[in-house]
Design a protein around this nucleic acid. Structure first.
Lengths: 144, 144
DNA sequence: TACAAATAAATGTCTTACCAACAATATTGA
DNA sequence: TCAATATTGTTGGTAAGACATTTATTTGTA
């Protein structure tokens, strides 16, 4: 009595499927990153700053397609952990520049290796063509 | 000077790509659903309850693969909007049954049509094979 | 029966995400 | 020049997701 309907509607919708899968993959990354005390979103920020140390806040947000207020709070947490630093932009007093700390530079390579490994593990579950098609669809969807 | 590195690292990672696309698709649904005063997550819950009116809280959470605490807060909001109702389970005093209200029943069909339309719009951007491959990958990723 | 263990849902905390409103600063254009 | 406008980053609000803890109830077993 009162069985579960295994085919309940929401699973028909792209948005639902995406969010479910995203959560799953996110948790997978999260569990691994937690040994470094950071979250996936924090890793993306560190990674982008590593690529362009001293990047402007504005450009960082734009590059990550992240709302400014979201970035503000992630920077707050990373700064609290002494992983990065905001400095004044000498050219524009409204603007901020973002730098990695020494501490972050010491672990970023190792964390990046982990991220690559996780990525390969996921890719490895699929054939080249299958994965390529997947990425193509993601790419088109992200261009709106 | 100080150009944006368009190829900043994070975009290499599946998890990052997924979350970016998910956010985009989510916003797309969100904008349309907002005319009914609900969010996509709230729609999934309504939709699942509609499929199985009087479903147990526990089974609802399981079916939606949603943490109980997340569902609790979504139910709170839907109950506040008079869209659904918790009732005691006569068979187990720890358990709750979830029902749609009259108000919800009046609009759920219309909202579902909208959801179907959005879904078709997204699917329609791709070829059959392309979309099928995409769904296959999502499916595999969502299993474990 | 009695009591320990398991289960159901709620609560509190943290993180991410979005939006609107705001303060400080820069740019513009009359 | 200087007032209107635009831009930068922060703050505050709400929602969602995850996790740990808590309370009430049920189950299982000694």
């Amino acid at each position: 009595m009162n069985e579960i309907k295994t085919n309940s509607r929401p699973s028909k919708y792209v948005c639902y499927k995406l969010s479910r899968v995203m959560r799953k993959v996110h948790r997978y990354y999260e569990n691994s990153f937690s040994q470094y005390g950071i979250t996936p979103a924090q890793f993306y920020v560190l990674s982008a700053v590593w690529e362009n140390d001293g990047v402007k806040f504005k450009d960082l947000a734009k590059g990550l397609e992240m709302d400014g207020s979201t970035l503000t709070s992630i920077l707050d947490r990373l700064e609290r952990q002494d992983l990065l630093e905001r400095r004044d932009d000498p050219e524009d007093r409204r603007s901020l520049l973002v730098f990695l700390t020494k501490k972050a530079k010491q672990s970023i390579v190792e964390i990046t290796c982990l991220a690559e490994k996780l990525n390969q593990e996921i890719k490895g579950r699929f054939s080249e063509e299958e994965y390529a098609a997947f990425e193509r669809v993601l790419e088109k969807l992200s261009q709106e």
